[in-house]
């Protein structure tokens, strides 16, 4: 609880300062003009979504190795927050693409693999709902997460391996220092917020799992008393 509060406070603080610098202090890009400011939300969304998916992959391995359900709680947290950021990534990218490339969407490798990534991990969340029991649910999710994760390095490296409309990764060498600062602040801000939400989602999963662990007769009694 305390760690979560700390993460949220630090995250909000960094993101607020980063957004202020990104919108009002950093210069516009020489060709893209102000549109380039979308970078300060788009790039952190991409980084943190992929980081969360990587964590989910680690939790999936830990779950299958140890069988402890706490890894399932963390795994669902990482995936859910990852999918939210992944969806945002696609919308932000579409807006940025319309303004710079001239199109909302094109089937280039970076865009396609990013969309596939969102669909695969959203699929893991859907799969969870179909499992007959808790043990199956955690196992199915872990196996599906490992398989879905294959796309994550592909998203990162595809622009280096294949031709694309999307540019390759920028680096501090290719980005004006006045633009690197808000990018860093927002990235760390979003990182802390995302970790806080992941832990929060994991806590929800844990308590709802405990609630469903109550033996059936007791549950029926609870529900009856609730209706009375």
């Amino acid at each position: 609880m305390n760690i979560r509060k700390l993460l949220v406070l630090a995250g909000l603080g960094l993101a607020a300062v980063g957004t202020y610098f990104g919108l009002f202090v950093a210069p516009p890009e020489r060709h893209m003009g102000d549109v380039q400011r979308i970078m300060y939300v788009h790039v952190p969304s991409a980084w943190i979504a992929m980081l969360l998916y990587t964590l989910a992959f680690g939790f999936a391995i830990a779950l299958l190795w140890s069988g402890r359900q706490k890894w399932d709680d963390l795994m669902v947290g990482a995936i859910e927050v990852g999918v939210v950021l992944n969806a945002l990534l696609l919308v932000q990218g579409s807006l940025w693409g319309r303004a710079t490339w001239g199109v909302w969407w094109d089937w280039d490798v970076r865009l396609t693999t990013s969309l596939v990534m969102a669909i695969l991990f959203a699929g893991v969340l859907v799969l969870r709902r179909m499992a007959p029991n808790e043990e199956r649910r955690s196992q199915w999710s872990a196996v599906a997460t490992v398989v879905a994760f294959i796309d994550v390095p592909l998203v990162y490296f595809c622009v280096r391996w294949w031709r694309s409309l999307h540019q390759i990764q920028s680096s501090p060498d290719t980005v004006d220092p006045a633009m690197v600062l808000p990018l860093r602040l927002n990235s760390f801000g979003l990182l802390f917020l995302a970790l806080a939400w992941m832990l929060w989602r994991a806590a929800i999963e844990r308590s709802s799992r405990r609630a469903s662990e109550v033996p059936l007769p007791t549950r029926v009694a609870i529900e009856e008393s609730a209706h009375a």
Partner: peptide, 18 residues
């Protein structure tokens, strides 16, 4: 009929001589 502009990974402030 579909013309897309490809941007590179350089992001610079205006004024810096290109």
């Amino acid at each position: 009929e579909r013309l897309m502009v490809k941007h590179d990974n350089e992001y610079q402030a205006p004024g810096e001589e290109e």
